[in-house]
């Protein structure tokens, strides 16, 4: 009896201590994330300054602010581009980052690792505006380096900036190039957590290098990969505006493959500045993201419950 009581008291004490540990994060989220959530109602209001957010009339019909997107003839195209391109980025980005991390793990000299890391992280320091200048210097029809190379080998120059079909690939390359160094560091740090004894034991057992990678390194990375992918999927209906807007130079001829929800909303509302409509777009993004993340998490939970997010 007394023993049981003591245990439960210990459990309570532990839980209080653990609860206190989360307190700063809980408080910060309450203030800076949960409190502003009332702003969501703006998506359903016909906002007037004189009446305030709560006093303004509801839209009639209630979802009218959503029409500019939902009833748009481009809604399908934009949704498709956003989801497909983001999916491509997540898939290829993760694959490349993991591959480079595994390769880097094979580099045994510390100074070499440092050199490679330093170089591969350089693109992450460049803002999208800077990247857009670089891409332009490569792809410009007349002065572009790539077209000059094509001409050197006797080919005819390509009008990159007016041919939409190239751009999913160009954007994919740019995105992976920009982020691979940074993401690689995350996976590399995770690999550093592997017990060296495991490798030594495997080597004693005569495992080949590839076998060691497949049976030791990759399983070590699975939890972090799953988590990163899940979190990315939670943002799948939000596009990196800076990249899509700057790198494509906002050329209209490319929209059929590069127009995503964030660029659409920006272009559509920049002249009008309608608060209700921009709130509606953000609510819509949240709803789609919510559905995808819950689905993805459910799938993960089925396969390996310990790796699911919630």
């Amino acid at each position: 009896m007394t023993k049981k009581k003591r245990i439960s008291r210990r459990v309570i004490r532990e839980n209080i201590q653990l609860g206190m540990l989360t307190l700063p994060v809980v408080a910060l989220l309450a203030i800076f994330s949960y409190w502003p959530m009332f702003g969501v109602i703006l998506a359903f209001k016909n906002y007037k300054v004189t009446q305030g957010i709560f006093g303004s009339d509801w839209m009639n019909p209630l979802f009218k602010n959503f029409d500019f997107f939902l009833k748009s003839q481009d809604a399908f195209r934009i949704t498709r581009n956003t989801l497909l391109l983001n999916f491509l980025f997540i898939f290829a980005g993760t694959f490349c980052s993991v591959a480079f991390a595994l390769l880097m793990y094979e580099v045994k000299k510390n100074y070499q690792v440092k050199i490679y890391q330093t170089f591969s992280i350089l693109p992450s320091f460049l803002s999208w505006v800077a990247v857009s200048y670089i891409v332009y210097s490569l792809l410009d029809t007349d002065k572009g380096i790539i077209n000059r190379i094509i001409e050197f080998f006797g080919g005819s120059p390509v009008a990159w900036y007016t041919t939409a079909s190239y751009w999913p690939v160009i954007l994919l390359i740019v995105k992976v190039w920009h982020s691979v160094g940074l993401n690689c560091i995350i996976y590399y740090a995770s690999l550093m957590g592997i017990d060296n004894e495991l490798f030594e034991a495997a080597e004693v057992d005569g495992a080949t290098k590839l076998q060691r990678v497949i049976h030791i390194s990759v399983p070590q990375l699975i939890p972090i990969i799953t988590m990163m992918v899940l979190l990315d999927i939670g943002q799948i209906f939000r596009a990196d505006f800076g990249m899509f807007y700057n790198v494509t130079r906002n050329v209209g001829a490319l929209y059929s493959t590069t127009d995503v929800i964030d660029t659409y909303v920006f272009r559509t509302l920049i002249n009008q500045g309608n608060i209700g409509m921009s709130s509606a777009a953000s609510v819509l993004q949240s709803v789609v993201c919510f559905i995808t993340i819950v689905t993805a998490n459910a799938v993960v939970k089925k396969i390996s419950p310990e790796n699911s997010l919630f």
Binding site: V11, V26, S33, P36, G39, L42, G234, Q235, I275
Partner: peptide
């Protein structure tokens, strides 16, 4: 051994999905 683990995970994750937008944060 943390009993509120699940609850708090949800609490921390939810804001990445929903945000109230610029206007309310600004106010």
């Amino acid at each position: 051994n943390f009993k509120f683990r699940k609850l708090l995970t949800g609490y921390i994750f939810f804001p990445t999905l929903f945000n109230g937008g610029l206007v309310s944060s600004y106010i």
